[in-house]
């Protein structure tokens, strides 16, 4: 009697677990599928080759080239800055300070906290910085804010791979007379290149998809930004604004813009995996 109940319980939970897993994965396919399906119908060449023309937000012709270029320029620059800041951090705590040292743990903790802070708070903080330095809403403001926002994402992902480098490898390099910076740049960096590239792409993907951090800071413009001080449109905000208009034609374009953004995100995540696999053959197993 008891054992048949146990069997029943196990079967019920097994069923629930499989259903839950299917729900989670199903949501992913449903979201991507819906956005791609809805978007493809409204896609045309104008969307990616033209900027908004007069009356675009009332349904007249044009595209979102301004937002595509804005997003890519803004996020690439922010990713470059975040990389220049997070690489030294990760190398320092792992090679100079020692990966299990108190200092390293403290920095990891603070990166974890930074990772947990919502992007809207980064937006507000970026806004405060801009007011302090007298920068108006511009490409530059957006770059600074997004760089801060993706810094912990990139640094944590890099730390995850760099802290896994075998101690023996580092010690072998030291024993051959290399200094710490030589070990860091010629041994550790080369060994972890696949992981570092994935970390960069991961951060780029997060940065390009985030709207709340650029809402205050990068402004919005129908023109392609030509200098750091001009306001720049971004894709997530273009989606948000177009969906918010009362005109069905413009809302259709929000779907098309969402299609473009989703494709970019898919390309970034898939190439992160492929590149990581490709560079892996240069590492010592």
């Amino acid at each position: 009697m008891r054992s048949s109940f146990n069997k029943f319980e196990e079967a019920v939970f097994r069923f629930l677990m499989i259903v839950s897993t299917l729900v989670v994965l199903g949501c992913l396919f449903l979201i991507i599928g819906t956005v791609l399906f809805k978007g493809i119908g409204s896609m045309d060449l104008d969307m990616i080759t033209r900027t908004p023309q007069g009356g675009y937000y009332l349904g007249k012709e044009g595209g979102v080239l301004n937002a595509i270029v804005g997003s890519i320029v803004l996020t690439s620059s922010a990713t470059a800055i975040a990389f220049l800041a997070s690489l030294p951090v990760v190398l320092y705590i792992n090679i100079y300070a020692g990966k299990n040292s108190r200092f390293a743990e403290l920095i990891r903790l603070s990166l974890d906290f930074l990772w947990g802070i919502p992007s809207i708070v980064y937006g507000a903080f970026g806004f405060i910085i801009m007011v302090y330095f007298g920068i108006s809403a511009s490409l530059l403001g957006g770059i600074i804010t997004v760089a801060l926002f993706i810094l912990p994402i990139m640094a944590r992902a890099m730390d995850e791979v760099i802290s896994l480098v075998p101690v023996e490898l580092v010690e072998a390099s030291f024993s051959l007379g290399s200094t710490r910076i030589e070990t860091a740049s010629r041994v550790v960096l080369r060994q972890t290149l696949p992981g570092i590239i994935s970390a960069i792409l991961l951060a780029f993907g997060r940065g390009i998809g985030d709207a709340a951090s650029v809402l205050f800071t990068s402004g919005f413009s129908d023109r392609i930004p030509l200098s750091l001080t001009q306001p720049a449109a971004t894709l997530p905000l273009a989606i948000f604004f177009q969906l918010g208009t009362p005109f069905p034609e413009v809302q259709e374009r929000a779907y098309a813009s969402a299609f473009i953004l989703t494709i970019i995100i898919l390309i970034v995540s898939i190439s992160a995996r492929l590149l990581a696999a490709r560079f892996r053959r240069h590492t010592i197993q």
Binding site: I31, T34, D210, A211, P236, F240, L243, I265
Partner: peptide, 21 residues
């Protein structure tokens, strides 16, 4: 990788999906 991808979808895409579905 699929669960990672779910984490990587931008929130504005979640939003537009929420509005549609």
């Amino acid at each position: 990788p699929f669960i990672d991808l779910l984490a990587g979808i931008p929130s504005v895409i979640y939003g537009i999906w929420g509005v549609i579905v």
